[in-house]
């Protein structure tokens, strides 16, 4: 595959790459750097999968491995999600809060408080739009692990939302002195 072909293929995935990177980093600048580094590595590689699903998994694995290198350098360790403190196995818990607190803004803020493993699976499935099978391939875990992990991640997200004091203003506001 020539340089132009590699670049065109890569460009199609930039938004999803960036969404996944943001879920990992929680910071727009770090996500930008992560995607740039991933792009450079993919363009420099001589062994690029021709099949698009294989290419997609390969590309996102590069990003993930690059991120793992970053956090190793920062001497952090990925939490094991099954024992993650921000998860509580609650079966089918009852949500008693106003659904209006669930918004892109509040979710974005709560995402930064979640464990790396939870952020990662939400990033792959919800932000980047991968199926469970595709996410499992990128994470190199069984599909069943993705199934349980996404359920726990969303429950953890709801728990963080319930405990958050951030609310998004409604899009329309009533004028003063309306008769």
């Amino acid at each position: 595959m020539g340089v132009r072909g590699k670049r065109q293929l890569l460009e199609n995935y930039i938004p999803r790459l960036y969404g996944y990177a943001f879920s990992l980093c929680g910071d727009v600048h770090d996500a930008h750097d992560l995607v740039q580094e991933t792009a450079v590595k993919s363009l420099k590689s001589h062994r690029v999968p021709e099949d698009e699903p294989a290419y997609r998994a390969w590309l996102f694995k590069i990003l993930r491995n690059t991120w793992l290198d970053v956090i190793r350098r920062r001497s952090r360790r990925l939490a094991v999600v099954e024992n993650d403190p921000d998860y509580a196995e609650i079966g089918s818990p009852v949500w008693t809060h106003d659904d209006s607190i669930i918004s892109a803004l509040t979710v974005r803020l709560c995402l930064t408080k979640m464990s790396p493993a939870h952020r990662e699976v939400l990033g792959l499935v919800d932000i980047s739009g991968f199926s469970y099978v595709e996410a499992a391939d990128i994470l190199e875990v069984p599909v069943g692990t993705v199934t349980s992990r996404i359920a726990r991640a969303r429950s953890a997200m709801l728990a963080h939302l319930a405990n958050s004091n951030v609310r998004q203003f409604p899009a329309e506001r009533r004028g003063r002195g309306a008769s």
Binding site: R7, L10, E11, I14, P15, R16, L17, Y18, G19, F22, V28, H29, A31, H32, V35, Q36, A39, I102, S103, A104, T106, V107, R108, L111, L122, D126, I127, S128, G129
Partner: peptide, 15 residues
Amino acid sequence: ALCDLGEDLPEQVTV
């Protein structure tokens, strides 16, 4: 909301 977040992220990445 997470899908919307993915579409709202402002940073432009240059290939």
